[in-house]
Nucleic acid binder design. Structure first.
Length: 664
DNA sequence: CGTCTCCAGGTTTTT
DNA sequence: CCTGGAGACG
């Protein structure tokens, strides 16, 4: 490898990239070439003879992990099969697959997503006799997560959730399942309980890098500390901390300074990404936050286009506007579609934009949205696969017991649950008992239904044992249970919906096919696939990103950049989100950071839309622009009002509105 | 006992 | 608008 590090990096970047020994804290402002530094730093380590397997790079989102490994591959021109670049959670899965037996779980454990977890929490609450009328399983889930990650204890358990929590924990273990928090928490437990396991990992990963360090939770920080000796490099920016709701804690920057007092600290402050117009806007906005490490980003890209603001009448018009303007700019500036990013605060906003893009034939790709894997029809199929992999997985077993309808309804499940309780065994074991033990009193009809259900599962359990032709087997499964017939009968008045759902299943199967045929895939087994999809929201493995507009939440866009950025739905109540503000005052600052992240994604042009009215739960609601807009210096803004009904007067009105909000 | 039908309620961001 | 749960029906 003959990389000229001096030519490729500025002095701060160079120092950061070539300091590979000892603890290093890099404060990297938006657009200051953070990914570049990490990429070159990795290349530098490889240059110096560090083996790939000794390097561990951790990120938060799959997108970031993917981006990072692609860039390293690109810079080094090497295949990097032994380099570990992953999210904290998928790294946790890797550890648990090797070590979880130490804690009493068995192989092929299930990873419960939000839906599974909520279901289990409901069951547990019912089990311990909690009053169900006023029970909020989502709230309980949040409390459980806080407890699990050490942010809360049961001392002030106003809701009386503690009992449910213990039931929940016991059930997870009985079902051989873990939840997302366990993916970090259980590895910590392994390392703290079994020092020899910890040593083995510490010996292997002699060089550790953490990206987006401001987003680490205390729990993740603990895991990182257990793993690392001294060659630890963390990269972060307190202004871009946007995950505090998930336990991210930028005090970790302070913890790091405390725990590694001999650390080196480097600040990257030169922004190469954005025009000064965009940067000035970003700086003005973020300056309204207290409590930040002051840093002024400087950019050599003087001037640049004004930031454009447009106030569409409705979300429909907003979509049309964005689609039209993308086409205009693409033509005029000779850009590709993939150089555009459309950012939104909440996934719910994607829908209209997608419709507009479809109508205008603008190719796009969405990240997030109701996760593909959480769609009902997809979850059904996956539940079958989970039960086949892990027979103790009661949550998924119950989910599919009567899907498609096979006579095992509510009452049957209740009876089975009684049996399971009586013999303290899993539902699956209870079913087996009912099948074989004819002395056990049970409705004969149901007994037969259970028998054929079990036979079906057993058949496919054998079927899936081999490691070949996964997708063919899944297709066979879907055919055998006549899932298509089920979809048709479930959606009798909506043939289109049935078809759409079936197409989703079809695309799931095709996804498996692509995945198992990937020559880089060293482990094309059912279980490896299940693990993988537990941690991703969307299967973009084979997706060809080129030539498509990126439609994404601001959270998911962090770390990415686009020539032209639209921030859609920039209304009060959306950014900042009303719900976030309800939770606490500190959240205004986090919402502002979110807006800051959105602005700083843009290289050349930034366009912001704020609807005057928007449909919410099928009801149109009047909207006012986001108060953050008033924090951008007026001189940087231009109101766009071309073809629409927006007159000069109305524009002035909108402005008065913004200022009025700013003043109050 | 299973299935069908209607109704209320609910949505921040991600792993 | 879409899902999940409760109650009626067969």
């Amino acid at each position: 490898m003959h990389l000229n590090y001096h030519a490729e990096l500025n002095p701060e970047q160079y120092e950061a990239a070539t300091t590979i020994e000892g603890p290093l804290l890099i404060i990297a402002g938006a657009g200051s070439g953070k990914t570049r530094v990490i990429t070159y730093r990795t290349a530098y380590m490889l240059d110096k003879g560090v083996p790939q397997s000794a390097i561990l790079a951790l990120t938060f989102t799959n997108k970031a992990a993917k981006e990072m490994s692609e860039r390293v591959r690109h810079v080094t021109g090497k295949k990097l099969q032994n380099l570990s670049v992953s999210t904290f959670h998928s790294f946790g899965v890797k550890i648990l697959r090797k070590e979880i037996q130490r804690l009493g779980w068995r192989d092929n454990f299930s990873i419960y997503d939000e839906v599974d977890r909520t279901q289990l929490i409901k069951d547990c609450a019912r089990e311990v006799g909690f009053r169900m009328d006023a029970f909020d399983p989502n709230k309980a889930g949040m409390v459980f997560s806080d407890v699990k990650t050490g942010r809360k204890d049961w001392v002030n358990d106003a809701d009386g959730y503690e009992k449910i929590y213990h039931e929940y924990q016991a059930a997870l273990k009985a079902y051989n399942a873990v939840d997302f928090d366990d993916l970090i928490g259980l590895p910590i437990r392994v390392f703290e309980t079994f020092p020899e396991a910890r040593e083995a990992y510490r010996d292997q990963f002699r060089f550790i890098m953490i990206d987006e360090f401001q987003d680490t939770s205390l729990q993740q920080y603990r895991l990182m500390r257990l793993l690392s000796r001294d060659n630890i490099c963390v990269v972060g920016d307190d202004d871009q901390s946007i995950y505090s709701w998930r336990g991210a804690n930028f005090e970790n920057i302070i913890n790091f300074e405390k725990d590694w007092p001999q650390r080196k600290e480097i600040t990257l402050y030169r922004n190469y990404r954005s025009t000064t117009t965009i940067l000035d806007a970003a700086n003005s906005v973020i300056q309204h936050n207290s409590n930040r490490k002051p840093k002024d980003l400087v950019s050599p890209n003087e001037g640049g286009a004004m930031i454009e603001i447009y106030a569409p009448e409705s979300e429909i018009e907003e979509g049309e506007f964005i689609a039209r303007v993308i086409k205009e700019i693409k033509l005029k500036d000779k850009l590709r579609y993939d150089q555009f990013g459309v950012l939104i605060r909440t996934n719910a906003l994607t829908r209209h934009l997608e419709e507009a893009f479809l109508a205008a034939q603008v190719p796009y790709r969405v990240t997030g949205g109701t996760s593909f894997f959480q769609r009902k029809e997809i979850k059904d199929v996956i539940s079958y696969l989970r039960v086949i992999a892990n027979p103790e997985d009661d949550v998924n077993l119950i989910r599919i017991a009567n899907v498609p309808r096979r006579g095992i309804g509510r009452r049957s499940l209740e009876l089975l649950s009684d049996v399971a309780k009586r013999y303290s065994c899993s539902m699956r074991a209870a079913m087996q008992r009912v099948r074989s033990d004819h002395d056990l009193e049970f409705p004969e009809r149901t007994r037969q239904d259970i028998d054929s259900f079990l036979s079906l599962l057993e058949f496919f359990r054998e079927e899936f044992k081999g490691r070949r032709n996964l997708s063919l087997k899944v297709r066979k499964l879907v055919d055998t249970i006549d899932y298509w017939g089920y979809l048709v009968s479930e959606n009798q008045h909506n043939e289109k919906a049935a078809k759409w759902k079936f197409l989703n299943v079809e695309s799931l199967i095709q996804g498996i096919d692509v995945w198992e045929k990937d020559p880089d895939n060293l482990e094309p087994t059912l279980y490896a696939w299940l693990n993988r999809i537990s941690l991703i929201t969307r299967d973009d493995q084979d997706e060809d990103d080129s030539g498509k507009v990126n439609l994404t939440t601001i959270h998911a866009a962090k770390g990415l950049e686009y020539d032209v950025v639209f921030i859609a739905g920039c209304e009060d109540g959306i950014i900042p989100h009303a719900r976030a503000l309800e939770e606490g005052d500190g959240n205004v600052e986090e919402e502002r950071r979110l807006f800051y992240v959105a602005i700083t994604r843009a290289r050349q042009r930034l366009l912001i839309t704020a609807c005057r009215r928007r449909r919410r739960n099928a009801m149109p609601v009047d909207c006012t622009p986001s108060p953050f807009l008033a924090e951008i210096p007026e001189a940087l803004l231009s109101w766009r009002e071309d073809e629409a009904a927006l007159t000069e007067d109305e524009a002035a009105d909108a402005w008065t509105q913004v200022h009025a909000m700013f003043d109050k």
